[in-house]
Amino acid sequence: MQPKAIGLLRLDTTDDRKRDEQVIADLVSKGGYDFAGLLTIKPDTYMPTTLVVETVHKLGATAILTPDFDHFGGAVRAVSLACELVTPYGTVPRSEP
Rank of each mutant, 00 (worst) to 15 (best):
L27Q: 05
Y33H: 05
L8D: 03
L51A: 03
S80W: 14
H71A: 00
V92L: 08
R17P: 01
C83N: 08
I6Y: 07
H57M: 03
G90Y: 09
F69K: 05
G31W: 05
T45G: 00
I64F: 05
R17C: 00
L51T: 11
P93M: 02
G74C: 04
R17H: 01
K4L: 02
K18P: 00
D44Y: 12
R19T: 09
G32N: 03
P93Q: 15
F72S: 01
E96Y: 15
L9H: 09
Q2T: 14
F72K: 01
Y46R: 11
T14V: 10
F69Q: 08
G90K: 07
P43A: 12
T40P: 01
D15E: 10
G90E: 09
V79E: 06
T91K: 13
K30F: 00
L9A: 11
G7W: 07
T13Y: 06
L8M: 09
L38I: 04
M47V: 08
E54H: 07
A63K: 04
T91W: 02
G31E: 03
P88C: 04
L85I: 14
L38F: 04
S29H: 09
T62G: 07
A75F: 13
V53W: 11
D26M: 03
F69D: 11
P93I: 09
G32Y: 05
L85S: 07
E84F: 01
V92R: 07
K58T: 14
I64M: 02
E84D: 12
V86N: 03
L39H: 08
R10P: 00
D44S: 12
T62A: 05
V92H: 11
D68K: 08
E54G: 03
L39V: 10
M1I: 12
Q2S: 10
G37I: 04
Q22R: 09
P97K: 15
P43N: 15
K4S: 12
V79Q: 10
L65T: 12
R10V: 04
V86Q: 11
K42P: 00
A36F: 03
S29E: 11
K18I: 08
D12T: 02
S29L: 03
I24A: 04
D16L: 05
P3H: 12
G73D: 12
T49F: 05
R17F: 06
D68P: 00
G32F: 09
S80V: 11
E96R: 15
A82Q: 13
V53F: 12
E84W: 07
R94C: 00
I64C: 01
T87W: 04
L9K: 13
Y33M: 04
M1V: 14
H71Q: 05
T66L: 12
Q22I: 05
L38P: 06
V23I: 10
F35A: 00
L59R: 14
P97L: 12
T49M: 06
G73N: 14
P3E: 12
S95C: 02
L39F: 14
R94N: 02
V79D: 00
Y33P: 00
D44I: 02
D70F: 06
T62E: 10
T55F: 10
I41S: 04
V92F: 09
D12M: 02
G90V: 09
S29Q: 07
S95W: 15
S80C: 11
F69W: 06
D34Y: 07
P93L: 09
G37M: 04
D44T: 08
L11Y: 02
V86P: 03
C83V: 15
A61F: 04
A61V: 01
G90M: 13
G60E: 05
L8A: 06
D12C: 00
